[in-house]
Amino acid sequence: MSAVTQQEAAPAPSRLRARRRDSSARRASDLVLLVPLAVVLLAIIFPVLWMVYSALRPVQDIAAGVSWSTLLDNISLDAFVRLFEATNFEQYIVNSLLVCLVGTFCTVIVASLAGFALSRYSFRGRGAMFLLLVATQLLPFVVLITPVYLFFSQLGLLNSFPGIVLVYVAMTLPLAVLLMSGFFNGVPRTLDEAARMDGASTLTVIARVIAPLVWPGIVTVSVTAFIAMWEEFLFAQVFLTDDSLKTAQVGLAGLFGEYGTDWGVVMAASTIAAAPTIILFSFLQRRLVAGVAAGAIKG
């Protein structure tokens, strides 16, 4: 294995040492990249910061314009208090987490298998399957609601978590399969062929050989699926009318009234609705870097 890869892949202590040695290599020319990047990142997160800030301003100030001198006066958690008084928002968040975690897990497993098939086999119907997966994405979602509703009411899947999880897995699956097959395509076939020579079964090849190499891809698919499920509103609203089952998006939509809206509460709810995903993925993102390094060792 080459020197560079080893440096990338080295276990933590030696990598730290390497980094310390590297830090002397921080160059002025780095700023050519860092400064514009910092500006771009700031611009990217500004709307979110503003959302959080609006949630913290007292209700009279949200409507009023911004005066820069009194920017941080009267900051309070009032809007959050109003939110939790008026709704079961904490319950909605728990429901959303439950549905999305289970759904994401199922999507990733099913998509990995199908993605591997698309990537590694040239079987009859492969092209058709590819087309079918793309075709599912073509239909505008609103037209699916009525037939799926009828179908679910026959199966008794309305107002139940398994029902909505099934919808969400179906909804995220096509993209997940396509992405997974794209990531698998990036892995040289020689690797799994070598493992097969050693007598490994297909599932073992996927789980032990290929998966570690496409870790970033798996995380990407998970995050993509999770977020698509997390922000889905249409199906959740139609299928979950029972208050104890509602998801965060349905709760959120309930705050936009026909006659006026308490913007502080909306922003507070949004902040809370975004928080779990941000926390979860900051954590995953750190793991992701570690995952790549570990994958490289094995490779």
Binding site: L98, V102, F105, F161, P162, L284, R287, L288, A290, G291
Partner: peptide
């Protein structure tokens, strides 16, 4: 490790569902 975390979370969630 990540996979174990995800799997544990998912199994827990499934049981709760």
């Amino acid at each position: 490790k990540t996979s174990r975390y995800i799997a544990a979370a998912a199994v827990g969630a499934l049981a709760a569902t």
